Amino acid sequence: MSLRDLPAGPVLPRPAAFQADAPSDALVRWAEMPVAVQVTSVTESDSTITIFDVIGEDDMGGGVSLRRIAAALSRIGPQAVTVQINSPGGDMFEGIAIYNLLRAHPAAVTVEVLGLAASAASIIAMAGDEIHMSPGSFLMLHNAWGVVIGNRHDMAEAAALFESFDAALAGIYAARSGRPQVEIAALLDAETFLGAEEAITAGMADGMVEGSAAGPLARSPQSGAQSRPDIQARRRIDAALAQQGIPRSARRAMLRDLTGTRNAAEPATQNAGIPLSAIRQLIDTIRS
């Protein structure tokens, strides 16, 4: 169990026809974060787990899933683990499940926020016995977010469920920070980005990453690797599509068809050169 007295995340019912996604403003900020060559969904090195993708597996094999984190913890065994995060969030249900898994780990869990821990990724971060921020990194908190398809009765039912989701999220943040739940609820309503020092002051983090340099991802296992502007460009396109209200599954399919890659966070395996005219046509089509 966690060395801290952290509450278990509740088991929440997933609404029918619900599609999870990261908030578009978190995707925009994540798209501007540095990217390096070997960034993958989840990699393990010794006792370190990295979470450098959206939360929740999609139908093209992308994203960070409960199954992948469970496999990593099983390989590491009952020893202290470090979880490094740079993620815009995603599936709240998967995020709470991963939080519960880390909370149940029998040894110390140290979380390092290397860039962005937004939405569901910030819930995962709360499982740390110690939470350390890199300079220039952010936590982002917001109310439950997703797409529900149906009639007005479906929408009313979803609204009631989302209210209970918000209360559950606020309870986790409040327990970790020691702040009143009503105060946390106000932060969720405001869709709050907390910088490193703000997160520490708010009780959402305990200190800075030891030996951290002057920017996000300074302690990443990929730091020092060659920059990958192609990956960053795909993230920017994904964020632009999200701002137009295109669901995650549709965005992934569009990017796969356009670039020949299965995942917006990974380098293309074919058609590596994306014509600028094709990108402009895609954006113009969405805006029309």
Results as ranks from 00 to 15, higher is better:
112 E>A: 07
257 D>K: 14
155 M>E: 09
66 L>Y: 15
158 A>E: 05
3 L>M: 13
264 A>F: 14
147 V>K: 15
179 R>W: 08
182 V>S: 13
285 T>D: 13
66 L>Q: 06
38 Q>C: 12
156 A>P: 02
8 A>R: 06
56 G>R: 02
168 A>G: 04
172 I>D: 00
100 N>W: 11
259 T>F: 07
41 S>I: 01
44 E>Y: 10
107 A>N: 08
82 T>I: 04
100 N>I: 01
186 A>L: 12
90 G>A: 02
259 T>G: 15
200 I>G: 03
39 V>P: 04
265 A>H: 09
127 A>N: 00
62 G>K: 01
133 M>I: 11
279 I>Q: 05
37 V>S: 15
169 L>A: 11
133 M>H: 04
274 I>K: 08
134 S>M: 07
55 I>E: 05
10 P>E: 03
195 G>P: 06
47 S>V: 02
248 R>M: 14
142 H>D: 10
26 A>G: 04
131 I>Q: 05
263 N>Y: 06
222 Q>H: 15
239 A>L: 04
229 P>R: 08
142 H>R: 15
131 I>M: 08
255 L>R: 08
31 A>N: 09
179 R>A: 15
186 A>P: 00
145 W>G: 00
52 F>T: 06
260 G>W: 12
13 P>D: 12
261 T>E: 05
114 L>N: 11
135 P>M: 09
45 S>P: 00
143 N>C: 10
246 I>E: 08
158 A>P: 05
176 R>N: 01
255 L>P: 00
283 I>K: 07
159 A>Y: 07
